[in-house]
Simulated scan of single mutants.
Amino acid sequence: MATAYDEDHSISPSQNDDTDDRRSTIPAASADEKPFPFFGLLCYADKVDWLLMALGTVGSAIHGMAFPIGYLLLGKALDAFGTNINNQEAMVHALYKVVPYVWYMAAATFPAGMVEISCWIYSSERQLACMRLEYLRSVLNQEVGAFDTDLTTANIITGVTNHMNVIQDAIGEKLGHFVASFSTFFAGIIIAFASCWEVAMLSFLVIPLILAIGATYTKKMNVISLSRNAIVSQATSVVEQTLSHIKTVFSFVGENWAMESFVQCTDNQYKLSKKEAVIKGIGLGLFQTVTFCSWALMVWIGAVAVSNRAATGGGTIAAIMSILFGAM
């Protein structure tokens, strides 16, 4: 019988190879999975939301350009003081040419800021309402067994509150700030080249350093934030499950296990907080070091340009502030 079974049910080497091939293709398929795209968060936007986001983008661009334009006007005002320091009448006449542009900038920035914040926030609230509804519908369509394994009370509450709040920040006010910062960066570079090209050329040295430090710092903090959310969700799940089944816990003498599980979560969060403190200290320290060194280098180059009468003092200050604050 054993021989007959072996002859009938023996596995050939080719079948073994096929099985190994199928097993080896499983990780490859999972490795080919692409991360969720950012613009996929806007899949619930309708025509009204796209209109609001377009208006918010225009408002963010105008609001972002206000800072380098303000530095340019400040430089012109300083030049009016410096070049006419012995002639008060000429100084006032030169300032009269600058002051109206400040009023124009203020008149344009005020409504632009209102449109930016209101449109982005209102659009994100509309989209988030649709997301919450779809999330609730998806949860209710799950099988009953899923609520005993993956869909715990803590996971559902975390998805409705914390995760949705993160998505709202990403597609709302933070997206408006990103557009404004992008506008500030490019407007600052253009104004720096128009004011003092010698100082503006240093932007190719300074800006990559600042961006590299900022990108590394942000990446590390995002990883820590995800880890913290997982730890908090786990601790919340332990507390909720213990309190909701408190009679069962006491019946099986499981209070010590619950306390140990919660203490383990708090210990992990404490270790994560220490790591976060170290990363924040090093990141902010490097950022401040590069910033102040850049200030010193740009001021020195600007002083040389002003001494050689290749640029004005106000133009040099406008270029320095536009580059550094635009890069930040």
Rank of each mutant, 00 (worst) to 15 (best):
D6H: 12
D6Q: 11
H9P: 00
S10C: 11
S10Y: 10
Q15F: 06
P27D: 11
S30C: 04
F36Q: 12
C43K: 11
Y44V: 00
D46W: 05
D49E: 12
M53N: 02
A54M: 15
A66E: 06
F67S: 03
G70P: 08
L73I: 05
K76Q: 11
F81D: 11
N87R: 10
A90E: 07
M91Y: 09
Y96I: 08
V98F: 01
Y101A: 05
W103S: 10
T109M: 07
F110I: 14
M114F: 15
I117K: 11
S118H: 11
W120F: 14
S123V: 08
E125R: 10
Y135Q: 09
V139I: 14
N141D: 15
Q142P: 03
A146E: 10
T149F: 12
A154M: 14
T158G: 13
N162W: 03
I167V: 13
Q168T: 02
D169C: 01
A170C: 01
G176V: 00
A180E: 01
T184R: 11
I189H: 02
A194Q: 04
E198P: 00
A200T: 10
M201V: 14
L211T: 09
T216H: 03
Y217P: 07
R228G: 04
R228W: 03
Q234P: 02
A235V: 12
S237L: 14
F250H: 01
S251H: 07
S261T: 06
F262Q: 05
Q269T: 06
T291I: 13
T291R: 07
L297C: 14
G302F: 07
A305K: 03
S307W: 08
N308V: 09
G314I: 11
I317G: 11
I323N: 13
L324Y: 13
F325P: 00
A327V: 03
